[in-house]
Design a protein around this nucleic acid. Structure first.
Lengths: 220, 220
DNA sequence: CGGAATCCTCTTCGATACTG
DNA sequence: CAGTATCGAAGAGGATTCCG
């Protein structure tokens, strides 16, 4: 159970030891979206072997980035959750989403896709300054299961959470179009006209999105 | 020359493919501090083998994160430099510095240490909002070679650059103490009194540091 | 479901040596 | 200086099996 170590006294080396192991960053991505069970993780990581997943989980437990938790009966089950130290990595993860978004336009056929991952995309471009205090319940239909979210403005910035309630707006689009809308690269009217986007319900909400999302200037 | 690929359509997976390879993140760290030659890199990466370094460099060239450049004679030499795409990773790198800083307090004896790396520490906590427009030339003495920097405030925030000119202030301290000063965890007077820090020159500059540096709230 | 243990294979690493 | 070539050793990964 000894893991690799760079013999350097530098925080980047420490970080690289943690997130540099194969699959680890994706485990953190999953848990950033909420607590998960072993089998959930395994499915969402596109077939990582159970032995490798076990090794990674144990490594993360050891390093204190995640915790193991026994749910009470009757839901008796084990779930993993990010610890404070693991949560502290979420801003970095969102930075990686913004960086990795440049590859979004060249998808690879046959790749596994979970609509849930789009929540990270939304979070990555959420404004962090105060935003208008409105809440929108939006149902996002991409290829795959629908993703019902609640997008809310507030003094602390924009928040994005899962929300099973009734949706005010339902949009159907490709993931890349959603990211385009959120980063401002695509204007809603364009997308509607071009057939890239279909919307049902309070369509005017689309025009409000720029208030809530931003290119989120990663200065230097 | 085929590299690993996660079969997932997610920006995090793309990012993990790049920075998840061993040594890669450290190569980016080095080039974030300035262009370097092959041999420089090799020395600063604590003995990575030349074959592995070659493989990583080629991978990064292929993915467009770095460029190769022939310097004009008489300095005839090859250097590597971050491309725009590589530069775009610097904010993430600084996020990792802030995250990895939690391990700074438990150093490992015998580890390689380059004072130059402290520049990343300073950058990681530099304020990004406008700061008072003063410039300080500080010579930082840690175990190893001195690090002469120019720390400057301005409308665009704080900048930190190398500066070989005459220093207004010379401080001698351990890396962890420097980070403590910059994050506000340690107050200069404390450090001076405790013998953790010795200063020569315009000592009052120490009191100005909080204007320039910050814990740089990584909210969520 | 939630893993631990085994086995076997395929890479990768590091060391060394060599070249333009 | 800036790599390439080779080689043996070590390790990581996948598949499978089994157990509480």
């Amino acid at each position: 159970m000894k893991s690799f170590r760079y013999p350097q006294s530098c925080p980047v080396a420490r970080a690289a030891e943690v997130i540099g192991e194969r699959w680890t960053l994706l485990i953190i991505r999953e848990l950033a979206l909420g607590p998960q069970r072993f089998s959930d993780l395994r499915e969402r990581l596109s077939g990582v072997s159970s032995s490798v997943l076990t090794a990674r989980i144990n490594g993360l437990l050891e390093k204190g980035l995640i915790t193991r938790e026994q749910l009470d009966p009757p839901a008796a089950s084990t779930v993993y959750r990010l610890s404070d130290s693991g949560q502290a990595l979420v801003p970095v993860l969102l930075g990686l989403v913004r960086w990795g978004a440049r590859y979004f336009s060249s998808p690879h056929p046959g790749d596994h896709f979970e609509p849930d991952w789009l929540r990270l995309g939304l979070l990555a471009y959420s404004r962090r300054e105060a935003t208008p205090a409105h809440t929108y319940a939006i149902r996002i239909q991409t290829p795959g299961k629908p993703l019902p979210v609640r997008v809310a403005g507030g003094r602390g910035g924009t928040t994005v959470t899962l929300d099973d309630g009734p949706a005010e707006l339902t949009i159907t689009l490709e993931p890349s179009v959603l990211m385009g809308l959120v980063t401002g690269a695509i204007h809603p009217s364009e997308a509607l006209a071009g057939g890239k986007l279909s919307a049902e319900g309070r369509v005017e909400i689309l025009e409000k999105l720029p208030e809530l999302f931003d290119l989120n200037a990663d200065s230097t």
